[in-house]
Design a protein around this nucleic acid. Structure first.
Lengths: 252, 252
DNA sequence: GCTCCTGCCTGCCGTTACGTGAGAGTCAAC
DNA sequence: GTTGACTCTCACGTAACGGCAGGCAGGAGC
């Protein structure tokens, strides 16, 4: 099968100019021409173009792509493996960025200031080791946050006022309970932990017990989140942490 | 806190030249200068830079970024939500590419020719509807394939010969069994289905029963994969399909 | 006071991967 | 046999910097 520039451009989702350019620089020269000088691409050309586009999407400069593809030591399967590897690396990077954004979202929701280093953690010298497992742990599942923001983006001023009111009401009650001396694993405290979870469920995302305990751990582990709760009442961070864990265990 | 260009560049992971450029085009002008003309960036500038870098990473042209950031209707939270959305879109796109590569890998492993359309499916007018659920279903879990190729990339010629031998041995036995008239849900057929799964486990990736049934479905649904098995023996695709399903049910 | 080294400044030209016409020939169809 | 869609080859334009030149700034050590 032979194709014209236009046809190739259409099926591959690139412009004719791009194909001209690739011809110019010798990255992808059509295997033939018609008598009138029209470019004719065949199946092998398409295969090559596919490789080119994948490597391009992966951010390689065209010159390098030429070298990679013309490398006689690399068979098609090797290219696929290589691209697959590179893709998964990029995937990871993107997931890191998503996590960073989610972290920032949670932080601003709590009125927490980020340090410059944290702000650019994901850009600067990214330390892959640390993020690898931690990032996934930190929020449990990113689908949840996706859902959260899909919902949150639709809330108006009224909704936010209502959320705040519910939240403050809950805050007052847990502070009162703690002040009254009820242990964190008492039925009342656990009930308030359950309310905390359901509040998240109702307004933001489906929050499992597992995810809630993850949040609880973060409230203690990250001092800025700790500070948020300690600001409300001394000892609240630890109290809430224990109540959430106790509740999760009892419901399991 | 005030920072010099060099400090900002270092913490943000960009070059000094880039900051100069952003200043030139008015995208990010430092809030002040020293008496000697040195640029002085403050925390607000850093915050703005963070926004810039995120949008840049998302592929926006700088001019557009200027417009987006200077939009008075968008508060910080709105930016975070927006970036989060964009990121998840990109994430999905990347995952699609990974799936496409995996599809191509499986196809070449089976010596199956791809049509031009399939080749560029992921590039051309991507139809989001179709891929959304299907892509995830097709391979069950992409972690598996990641593992597969991490391992496969380390195999040498000897390994491949061995894999081929094991595979052909298995092929001969299932063909013989089918020819002997043993039903697909017989203990012997199910045992060979189990071997099929363990062959994948041993050489490529941890293949759960669920994933194996996914593969089995594809062997029937995609006629090129069907053809592969039908080439070995008539009715083998369906036979294997049923055996795999029967085996999966009995082990559940 | 002088030197040295590092960091910062402002031009200004180079580069990559195309975009965007201009002007002209080509091809299938009506 | 002319229209309209498609193709060709120059050729200049562009975005987002990279890289270098030539020249101050400022603290450290002598």
């Amino acid at each position: 099968m032979a194709y014209t520039v236009g046809q190739v451009a259409k099926v591959a989702g690139v412009t004719v100019r791009t194909l001209h350019h690739y011809d110019e620089i010798g990255l992808l020269s059509p295997s033939g021409r018609t008598s009138a000088g029209y470019r004719r691409y065949d199946d092998a050309d398409l295969q090559r173009l596919q490789l080119v586009l994948y490597y391009r999407e992966l951010g390689f400069p065209l010159e390098e792509i030429t070298a990679i593809i013309d490398d006689p030591a690399a068979d098609p399967a090797a290219h696929l493996r290589r691209q697959h590897e590179l893709l998964t690396v990029r995937l990871k990077r993107l997931q890191e960025m998503v996590t960073a954004i989610e972290f920032a979202m949670e932080a601003t929701k709590m009125n927490i200031q980020l340090t410059p280093e944290e702000r650019f953690e994901v850009f600067g010298d990214f330390s892959p080791e640390e993020h690898e497992a931690e990032a996934e742990q930190r929020w449990g599942d990113t689908d949840a946050y996706r859902e959260s923001n899909r919902r949150a983006s639709r809330y108006g001023k009224e909704d936010w006022l209502r959320i705040r009111a519910e939240n403050e009401d809950w805050g007052r009650r847990i502070v009162a309970l703690m002040a009254a001396g009820a242990p964190a694993d008492s039925a009342e405290a656990m009930e308030l932990a359950e309310e905390h979870r359901q509040l998240i469920c109702r307004w933001f995302y489906e929050c499992s017990y597992e995810m809630q305990t993850g949040l609880a751990d973060m409230y203690l582990a990250d001092e800025r989140f700790t500070a948020h709760y300690e600001n409300i009442a001394e000892g609240l961070a630890a109290y809430l942490h224990e109540a959430i864990h106790a509740n999760a265990i009892s419901r399991a």
